[in-house]
Each structure stands twice: as structure tokens, then as C-alpha cells.
């Protein structure tokens, strides 16, 4: 197993552990995240759009994989792009319809954590680019995954910023 794969699995395990801790904290006591009925409805619709987008994306991937012998994107990338697409559609829809931030949540903290994750992924992507490059033998490899995560997070931050400015201009 090379260092990239080892780093990938360790990183994956760390993210899973942090996620479980986050879920445990968020479900307990005053820290519990509360969404009102409209926000829950928005989240349900967001899940729906993300789910169907992922279905369509997977169908396209199957067609591409079976139809073409020499794809310029690795299978790992194709799978991961699907996850990124689903997450982005869900999050962007919820942000756009004000269902992303809970009633007792400080958006600033979430935005800072998203920006932090984007920066980490960006530098990890740059490190991969400088050490191994994104393309090997004419194929986009899994070294591009961190960079694509950074792009997705930056796009999400952009959606949040646009939404914030639109809200500011709303007349009560």
C-alpha cells in the first residue's frame, strides 16, 4: 500500500470519527440543532433533488464506463464526483432556501469551518499536483479528489455569499 492510499484511509477514518463525535454532540442538550417545519421541508426536497441527481449521474457513468474503453477519468474519481455532486446539490438547495443553518446555529462558525476545510483540501490538492500530478498516462487520477473537494466547498461558500447578499437586500 502506498502512502497516498494509507493517507486516504487514515483521513477517511479521522473524518468518520469526527463526524460521529459531531453527531453525538449535536444531539445532546442545548447544542441540539433545531430546524423549523419549513426548513425540514426544504431539507427533504434537497435530499430528493440530490438523490435523483446522483441516480442520473450514476446512469451516465455506467453508460460511459461500458461504452468507452479509455476514459480520461479514473473510476475512483467518477465515484467521488457523484458524492460531491450529491452533497453540493443538497447543501446549495438548502442554503438557497434558508434551510441549511439551524435556528440556534451561528452561520459564521459554519462558514469558517467550510472555509477551513476548503483551504485544507486545496493545499492537499496542490501537494498532490506538485508531487504526482493529477494526470497519469492520460487519465485523471484519484489525486484530484482533494482539489475537487476544495472546488465544491468554494462553490458552496459562493452560494452562501450570494444568498446572504440577496437576503440583505430583501425588504421586510
Amino acid at each position: 500500500m502506498d502512502f497516498f492510499k494509507l493517507g486516504f484511509y487514515v483521513g477517511f477514518a479521522v473524518v468518520c470519527i469526527f463526524f460521529l463525535i459531531f453527531v453525538a454532540i449535536s444531539k445532546s442538550g442545548e447544542k441540539a440543532y433545531q430546524y423549523d417545519e419549513r426548513q425540514q421541508l426544504v431539507q427533504g426536497k434537497g435530499f430528493q433533488y440530490a438523490f435523483f441527481s446522483l441516480l442520473i449521474y450514476n446512469a451516465i457513468c455506467i453508460l460511459l464506463i461500458t461504452g468507452f474503453d479509455n476514459l480520461i477519468i479514473s473510476n475512483e474519481d467518477l465515484i467521488f464526483f457523484g458524492i460531491i455532486l450529491g452533497v453540493f446539490i443538497y447543501a446549495a438547495y438548502c442554503v438557497w432556501h434558508d434551510g441549511y443553518f439551524s435556528l440556534n446555529e451561528k452561520p459564521k462558525r459554519v462558514i469558517l469551518s467550510l472555509a477551513f476545510c476548503a483551504v485544507i483540501n486545496f493545499f492537499a490538492g496542490m501537494l498532490n499536483l506538485s508531487q504526482q500530478g493529477f494526470i497519469q498516462n492520460g487519465v485523471l487520477t484519484n489525486h484530484f479528489i482533494s482539489f475537487s473537494c476544495a472546488i465544491m466547498l468554494l462553490l458552496l461558500l459562493l452560494v452562501i455569499a450570494i444568498r446572504y447578499h440577496r437576503k440583505k437586500s430583501e425588504v421586510e
Partner: peptide, 17 residues
């Protein structure tokens, strides 16, 4: 106990509470 946007949506008729 709801968000400001929910009240706004109800007033605008964008959401049926």
C-alpha cells in the same frame, strides 16, 4: 420558534404553514 425566513415566506404566500 421559527426562522425569520419562515415568517417572511408565510407573509409572501410562498409557504403554507
Amino acid at each position: 420558534g421559527v426562522s425569520r425566513q419562515t415568517i417572511s415566506a408565510v407573509e409572501k404566500g410562498d409557504y403554507n404553514p
